[in-house]
Amino acid sequence: MLTTITARRLITDTGEIEYPVVSVEDGHIVRIESGDANGSKETLTAAFFDIHVHGARSFDFMASDSSGIAEVGRFLVTRGVAHYLPTTVTAPLELTLKALERLADVIEHPSHGRSGAPIAVPVGIHLEGPFVSHGKRGVHPEVSIREPNIELFDRFQAAARGHIRLMTLAPELPHALELIQHATAAGVRVTMGHSTATSEETLASIAAGATSSTHLFNAMRPIDHREPGIVGTILDRDDIYAEAICDGVHVDPAIIRLWLKIKGEERAILVTDGMSATGVPDGTYTLGDFEVVVKDGVCLSGETLAGSVLTMDQAVANVQKFTGTSLGAAVRLASRNPARMMGMSQLSTMAPGTPANFNVFDEAGDHTGTIFRGRLVE
């Protein structure tokens, strides 16, 4: 059955349409036209794509079964996320392999969630660890960190049945460049992070194929005026994307303003780095095989930040508040840019034949709902 969705405006990946009339059939867009003026004050945008998230609602991707992963997806879609990359964390080898197998099962056999409720779709896996620096490991357990190894990566990819699509790696590690070249040739995007890399080592990684950075500023060698390091080099390169966790905890708002000014609306990417404590009260939760204590919305393992409880709708609101950027620009940081970086532009493009996935914002710019496959998420 053909249905229509109308609004005051539609923000696309390249511009805006006034008084859009979106025709939808079987959950997909049939056509988008500009209609007559109406009384709506709502704005439609593309749905979000979170490329760095570890879990939510007490469920962690390293340990959850298909029903737990479905619950995460059901929660994410209420926060505007239509697609995501479930993200691993450094852990014992067998735990990682089993997690990759479970995630592959869910990607290949997606669930519709509880009672057929709309559910965000995992479109690949982000392998964060074990190829990270001991010096900037954050909460990644030191005992399970490994040097880059093509054979081990291939073992991970075999367990994931080819669904690893993004990998975090520290450029300065032995054999990092060989692994970057190998993974890139296999269609995996490489993002630089958890690293003490110098500028020279970062540039070598980019030349080998790295295209992005993992939560820029966090778990990285800081900028020095004589050694720009990984942060300075990534900021200087116009062709490299850069994630940021815009929760006001991981990165000061002034640095978020600097990040957006330098990387611009084409290369900045919003991520949540959300963990199992997202969407539930403060308490003690797990990330991989270790505990994280959450108090007042801050996630700590000992004295080290361990992910976040940020949701993508809040990240979009925060970046507008911190920088003064427009709703359209903020949304593109959470939809178009991650999709382009991943080579999945179709996930943020609104055109005939694509899923009718939208976010709804009110006149004040607040996120008020998600439309998934043409259906308003309750």
Rank of each mutant, 00 (worst) to 15 (best):
D236W: 00
D236H: 13
R237A: 11
R237M: 09
D239A: 09
Y241P: 06
A242S: 15
A242Q: 02
A242G: 15
A242P: 05
E243Q: 14
A244L: 15
A244M: 15
I245N: 07
C246G: 04
C246V: 15
G248K: 08
G248H: 05
G248T: 00
G248V: 09
V249L: 13
H250G: 06
H250F: 07
H250I: 04
V251Q: 01
D252I: 11
D252F: 13
P253T: 06
P253Q: 07
P253D: 05
A254V: 14
A254M: 14
I255F: 01
R257L: 00
L258V: 12
W259N: 12
W259F: 15
K261Y: 05
K261Q: 14
K263N: 01
G264D: 08
G264K: 05
E265S: 14
E266Y: 04
R267C: 02
A268G: 14
A268H: 07
A268V: 14
A268M: 13
I269N: 10
I269Q: 09
I269T: 07
L270C: 10
T272V: 14
T272S: 12
T272Q: 01
D273G: 01
M275H: 08
S276G: 10
T278P: 10
T278S: 13
G279C: 06
G279S: 00
D282W: 08
D282M: 03
D282C: 04
D282Q: 00
G283K: 07
Y285M: 08
L287C: 10
L287P: 12
G288I: 07
D289N: 15
F290T: 04
E291Y: 05
V293K: 14
V293I: 13
V293A: 05
V293Y: 11
V294M: 02
K295H: 11
K295M: 10
D296R: 02
G297M: 11
V298L: 11
V298Y: 07
C299W: 00
S301Q: 11
G302E: 04
T304F: 02
L305F: 13
L305P: 00
G307H: 08
S308N: 04
S308R: 04
V309R: 08
V309M: 10
T311F: 03
T311S: 12
T311D: 02
M312Q: 08
M312V: 05
D313Q: 11
Q314S: 01
Q314P: 03
A317I: 01
Q320Y: 06
K321N: 03
L327Q: 10
A329R: 11
A329L: 00
A330H: 01
V331W: 01
